[in-house]
Amino acid sequence: MNIRVRAAAEYVGLSKSTLDKHRHYGTGPRYYKLGRSVVYAVSDLDAWLVENTRTGTWSANDNRANASQVAA
């Protein structure tokens, strides 16, 4: 099933604006462009949520991202 941006944001628990930013920066779930519309497959949203599951406050990936931001 495919859903539009506002419904996708609600599905993953984010604001539409935050999901838009993730799409812009390439850090969000996979999406499809149908004409001028952006849609998400629910299966892609589920996969993105699983990929971004954390077991602690900090992870090795978070540390590398923070180090690169501090160095910039």
Score class of each variant (00 low, 15 high):
M1L: 06
M1Q: 11
M1C: 03
I3C: 04
R4K: 15
V5R: 13
V5D: 02
R6S: 13
R6P: 01
A7I: 09
A8S: 13
A9W: 04
E10C: 01
E10Q: 15
Y11E: 02
V12Q: 06
G13P: 07
G13I: 08
L14H: 06
L14F: 14
S15K: 10
K16S: 13
K16H: 05
S17G: 10
L19H: 09
L19G: 10
D20M: 13
D20C: 05
D20A: 11
D20G: 06
K21P: 00
K21W: 10
K21H: 12
H22W: 11
H22M: 11
H22Q: 13
R23Y: 02
H24W: 02
Y25L: 09
Y25K: 05
Y25A: 04
Y25S: 08
Y25T: 14
G26A: 03
T27H: 11
G28D: 08
G28S: 05
P29D: 09
R30S: 10
Y31D: 01
Y31L: 05
K33F: 00
K33V: 01
L34Y: 04
G35A: 04
G35Y: 04
R36H: 10
V39S: 08
Y40K: 00
Y40E: 00
Y40C: 03
Y40A: 00
A41T: 01
V42G: 00
S43R: 13
S43V: 12
D44H: 12
D44N: 08
L45Q: 09
D46H: 06
D46K: 06
A47L: 12
W48A: 01
W48D: 04
L49K: 13
V50A: 14
E51K: 12
T53S: 11
R54S: 01
R54G: 00
T55G: 13
T57E: 12
W58Q: 08
W58I: 14
S59W: 01
N61A: 14
N61R: 13
N61D: 15
N63W: 08
N63M: 13
N63S: 05
R64W: 04
A65V: 10
N66D: 05
N66P: 00
A67S: 12
V70K: 09
V70I: 15
A72K: 12
